[in-house]
């Protein structure tokens, strides 16, 4: 500050008035406050910072969150739910990330953020039909309004056709009409898994194993756990196939059936029978796009998840 005043005095920017120089000299912080200590060091880039952490959830809050999550799960299961947001899920992750964060100017650009599924946007790696696509839920782009009854008198007249499911895009000759009465379906989802449940489940099993498998009914669990652990090892060593295909595996499925499910049994069998070679190569493309899996995945492909 004082340096600049000096330069100005020499005639760089015209003659400064006395008053201005006085202000400039006196209004610097160390002139006003004499006991200030100037610290010339550059400030630390990442100073230690005590991150505040939220208190643990109380029981009541746990319950509220669970109810909310269950409600959300049921909502997403209902016929009126449309797919989750598309604009962060476009196939090429890099561009989508930038699309989500960059600013959009005007409504046009904002609208372009939302994904459109055309032939050009299909991801060539996952678009080849595979067996596992059977299990995939196809996201709904339009709500299935025809699936349930509405109290139509409370809707504006222009929406009535849509409510009946007769609002097809123009020119389609054959209107698909549902026959039979429409019913309001109650959601069949009755539980939402919490993280604790997931962890507890695993822990409980481990605990049971420690206590010894002689407890009645624990046999199937033990076996499952054994298989699980070997599968994990197999994943590392590339020996997992033996456990997943073959009789051992079927046995496990049956044994587990009491508490798990039976109706899917045959489906599972088919699923596992084919798990030998071709199918799993696809599964690899499906899910793990990580590089680490690339090396081992080529030859064995023994596990699915």
């Amino acid at each position: 500050m004082s340096g600049r005043g000096g330069r100005g005095g020499r005639g760089g920017r015209g003659p400064p008035t006395n008053g201005r120089r006085a202000v400039a000299q006196n209004s610097v912080p160390w002139a006003m406050d004499s006991d200030i200590v100037l610290d010339g060091k550059p400030s630390e880039l990442f100073p230690p910072y005590a991150i505040p952490s939220a208190p643990v959830l109380t029981k009541k809050e746990e319950k509220q969150v669970s109810f909310f999550l269950l409600f959300r799960e049921q909502c997403q299961d209902s016929p009126l739910y449309t797919q989750a947001r598309t604009w962060t899920q476009s196939p090429s992750a890099a561009t989508s990330a930038s699309a989500a964060t960059t600013r959009a100017y005007g409504q046009d650009q904002l609208n372009k953020r939302y994904g459109q599924t055309t032939k050009a946007t299909v991801d060539p790696f996952t678009a080849v039909p595979t067996y596992s696509h059977k299990f995939k839920k196809v996201p709904r782009t339009l709500p299935d309004l025809a699936a349930r009854p509405f109290a139509k008198e409370f809707f504006p007249p222009e929406l009535h056709a849509a409510l009946d499911g007769e609002d097809e895009s123009g020119g389609q000759a054959a209107k698909r009409r549902r026959v039979g009465p429409k019913t309001l379906g109650l959601s069949s989802i009755t539980s939402y898994k919490t993280a604790e449940e997931l962890f507890l489940g695993a822990d409980g099993q481990a605990h049971q194993l420690q206590q010894g498998g002689q407890v009645g009914g624990g046999g199937s669990l033990d076996k499952a756990l054994q298989i699980m652990s070997t599968v994990e090892k197999g994943g590392e060593d590339g020996e997992g196939e033996a456990f997943l295909s073959g009789e051992d595996d079927d046995d496990w499925v049956k044994g587990n059936g009491e508490e798990d499910e039976d109706g899917n049994g045959d489906e599972d069998d088919v699923y596992e029978d084919e798990s030998g070679d071709d199918y799993n190569a696809e599964a690899y493309f499906d899910g793990n796009q990580d590089d680490e899996d690339y090396d081992e995945g080529g030859d064995d492909g023994g596990d699915y998840f």
């Binding site: 339009l142 709500p143 504006p156 097809e168």
Partner: peptide, 11 residues
């Protein structure tokens, strides 16, 4: 058509 469906859900 999309809008009609979306509005119906909101309503």
């Amino acid at each position: 058509r999309q809008l009609r469906h979306g509005l119906a859900v909101l309503q």
